[in-house]
């Protein structure tokens, strides 16, 4: 069975380690916060200017001056701090953020990512994605392996305008955990009940399958 969006987030949460500062993108990445073990200390950064982002506020306690990068109302946890946008991206460019998790429309086998524009159709802007992918050392992409038409989103070369080049190191899709190394996809884990052949079929780019591929554990 292919993973649900929640399960993708749950699998990615296992990559979040004690002491990490983590930036979560909009969509599936936002869900990761719900699955991080509560026996480790992690701080979430939102690029609009908060470290130590907490859950949504209780009804009636929302504050219009306290939102995340998705413009949703949030809370600040004990130990949180606020800062301006220039400092926020200083943190990001300066590689002080340990892990960046974001969505993608396409990823290529050399780690290029496209997630901000479909020419003539969708032009919403890149927001902070270009800054994040250009500077982060540790990027995990959360994505569906194929589009609605069943076409692969893990490609030899991206067809959409790029967000960044050769920057993605790991992908967690609804079918697999994949590492990008030496210009190739490397299959690390399969979604429970999904075969290597199914993953191979859904992957247009070159994918290395080395030995027995284990099923994901949550």
């Amino acid at each position: 069975m292919a993973l649900s969006k929640e399960q993708i987030a749950q699998r990615i949460a296992k990559e979040v380690k004690d002491g990490y500062y983590v930036n979560l993108g909009i969509g599936i990445p936002t869900l990761v916060a719900n699955f991080v073990r509560d026996d480790i200390d992690v701080e979430f950064q939102s690029e609009n200017g908060i470290l130590g982002m907490g859950p949504f506020p209780f009804e009636g306690e929302e504050d219009p001056d306290l939102i995340n990068a998705g413009k949703q109302t949030i809370t600040a946890l004990p130990g949180a701090s606020f800062f301006d946008s220039a400092m926020s991206f200083g943190m990001i460019r300066g590689q002080h953020v340990d892990l960046t998790i974001l969505g993608a429309m396409e990823v290529s086998q050399n780690g290029d990512i496209a997630n901000w524009k479909i020419p003539g159709k969708m032009v919403k802007g890149m927001g902070g994605a270009m800054d994040l992918v250009a500077s982060a050392e540790n990027i995990i992409v959360a994505m569906m392996h194929t589009n609605r038409a069943g076409e692969s989103k893990l490609l030899k070369q991206c067809s959409l305008p790029l967000t960044g080049v050769a920057c993605v190191k790991k992908i967690v899709s609804n079918l697999a955990v994949i590492e990008i190394r030496d210009g190739k996809f490397h299959l690390l884990e399969r979604a429970p009940g999904v075969s290597v052949e199914e993953i191979q079929k859904a992957t247009e780019g070159e994918m290395v399958v080395d030995g027995e591929i284990p099923e994901m554990k949550f």
């Binding site: 209780f58 009804e59 929302e62 109302t73």
Partner: peptide
């Protein structure tokens, strides 16, 4: 007015 763009809350 300080309008909220995306009101997201949880139940008490």
């Amino acid at each position: 007015e300080k309008r909220i763009e995306q009101l997201t809350v949880r139940k008490k």
